[in-house]
Write a protein that binds this DNA or RNA. Structure first.
Lengths: 203, 203, 203, 203
DNA sequence: AATGAATGAGTGTTCATTCAT
DNA sequence: AATGAATGAACACTCATTCAT
């Protein structure tokens, strides 16, 4: 019975993993359900015992991935309180997570943006949450006098996400390996330097 | 005869424009060739007189768009020589172009990232050229003593592209209107502040 | 043990009833076995312990229903002997049965006619028995001098069945409620009038 | 060009004919679109150039068939005015049409009643028109004093349709050949005898 | 050059039936 | 006896591409 329960769980997860793998390789529209099923080692129909539709599989995988990220950040925020360190931590986890699950990173870099609207709109929610997280940190830093007050928290947040996302994307496409900690440090070095109070640009 | 040649040119361009429009609206995989043909006011088969395949249409459209961007930047670099102003100019044109051709911007934000490998890999070339352009500017600034030398030109270049691209992406998804000049100024304000010499972060 | 046997019987019948219900609602081809199982409160697989196939369930249900009808008529024929009254009785039971088990009536009016040959051909047997029953009554009436001898017993039998069946069908489709006794009387009024001896039509 | 137009018309009709044939043989739900296409000698996809859906093919075929019937009756009613002869004519055309297009007759006897609700409900409209046609004739006969006034025109109409329909059905299933004129005469003989004025049944 | 009818391979999803538990 | 997870064949419909006109 324990075996049965385990096997149930296992199959659900196997389908999710297979989907991420196959879709990362070929793209959502070029990944027939039958290919996902084959990779997972189940029959085509079995997918529909665990998921409502092909879309549902992808949605679930993305959801889970983002939630893990979000969860991890929130937990650590209880011990890390300095806004600069918080931003650094977000960048690190962002890059780390993607290193750990390369397929999911590819998938996020490709499908998530793509015009399969159902996914794009849905995954936009996650992005919004990410951006909000960063904006709050920045506003806190501004009110503490750490960050310049003459830059928009929204713009900075988008810049930070965009910069890291682009580095990831580039690494994904070129297959380059990077060190999450070092890379995060470099990006934040520039960014923090740019927004730290008392160094306003005279343009 | 002149009319015939003109009409040829015209039809070729009409198909490209129609493709960008339709694909921006519905996504590549949800845009039948027949829909593109209808929008262009030609028969389905006619598309294949001008292009090898559906892919080829999209590829050509993206090529043309990027080349226009690249051309414009290179031309202006003959009169703008200060590295800081050059970066600002790139950012402005990047945002401007996307404002001017909203459909192409949508398409770039969605399809281009998509794992339809043929496009993703292909459009990566354009990105590489963009990044190289920026890196050269940064290295020039570093050798002139304007920019800090302790940051990687590659990372900064990716950050700059990523930041702008993400702002665009966000604007595209939310339908928000932005002012290209102001937005470019804000991003560059942070970035230049972050990499300007003599302000090294003490982390 | 008695309980077990009862439960066996019970489950068998529950499946039959559920099948008639579900199929009457959605049609044979739109009624998954799983829906029948759910309605019967058993597992999908259980159905195959009692029946050979989905077809078999429907066949059995129709068989039972017709046999009840046939049985009832034969029993009553021991006390009703006048051919005219016998025909009236058949018509009444035909309509009555369908009123009492509306779902079965719907099912007979729809699935039974359907070209799912296995059913159509099979249920044709029942119709043949019905027609023969009526023909015998008519021939008896003819030999007793009650009915005209210049009309084919076969044709009259088909007419009678067809007339009643069509009234039923119409009632089923429109959802109209009818009074079995009155309706039977009206049909037989016309029919008996038409075949009663001494009133030959002069056409 | 004439050939092209003819071929167009031809293909449309070939698909309709093939559909009626195949569906008459196997039933709607057991007739894959591919089988219809094969019978018509076209590719599967071609069906969808001429019809919106599989349903649409069947609907169109039934529509055309009934409309031919209805048309023929209405035309002849301009020269036949006696209610008795009108009823006889309807019966004859009903049986004739079905003899001429045996497949359509089978199809009407099977699919049309079937719980594929989309068809059942749709074809019900045709039946209603048929019944109304007959009812009007009967009411005219009643007001002219030819037919008894103590029987419901609706019930008689349903009886007439049901009787003929059942004879047809029986012939279809058994493969029996019948003579439309003779059969119609026999049914009407009974029916007219039953409803002719001055012969009220004394029940 | 231009057309658009025709093709047929390809895909998401359903469901009757089986079988290990 | 009973379950229900698993199977995989089947099917309606779409669409990129071709080619006769």
């Amino acid at each position: 019975m324990a075996a049965s329960a385990a096997s149930l769980k296992e199959k659900y997860q196997r389908i999710l993993d297979a989907a991420v793998e196959v879709i990362a390789e070929n793209g959502y529209f070029n990944s027939p359900v039958s290919a996902i099923a084959a990779r997972a080692g189940v029959a085509d129909g079995t997918i529909y015992l665990y998921f409502k539709s092909k879309d549902d599989v992808l949605r679930t995988a993305i959801d889970a991935s983002f939630n893990r990220f979000h969860q991890q950040v929130l937990e650590q925020f209880e011990t890390i309180t300095d806004p600069r360190e918080q931003l650094l931590y977000i960048a690190q986890v962002h890059l780390d997570t993607s290193t750990a699950d390369r397929n999911m990173a590819i998938l996020m870099q490709t499908e998530v943006r793509q015009s399969a609207r159902f996914i794009a709109e849905f995954s936009h929610h996650h992005l919004v949450k990410y951006i909000q997280l960063v904006r709050e940190v920045i506003r806190r830093g501004q009110s503490q006098g750490i960050f310049r007050k003459d830059v928009s928290d929204g713009i900075v947040a988008h810049c930070m996400f965009g910069a890291i996302d682009e580095l990831l994307s580039s690494a994904v496409f070129t297959g380059r390996i990077y060190d999450a900690k070092t890379t995060a440090a470099q990006v934040l070095n520039v960014l923090l330097n740019g927004i730290t109070s008392g160094r306003e640009h005279a343009s």
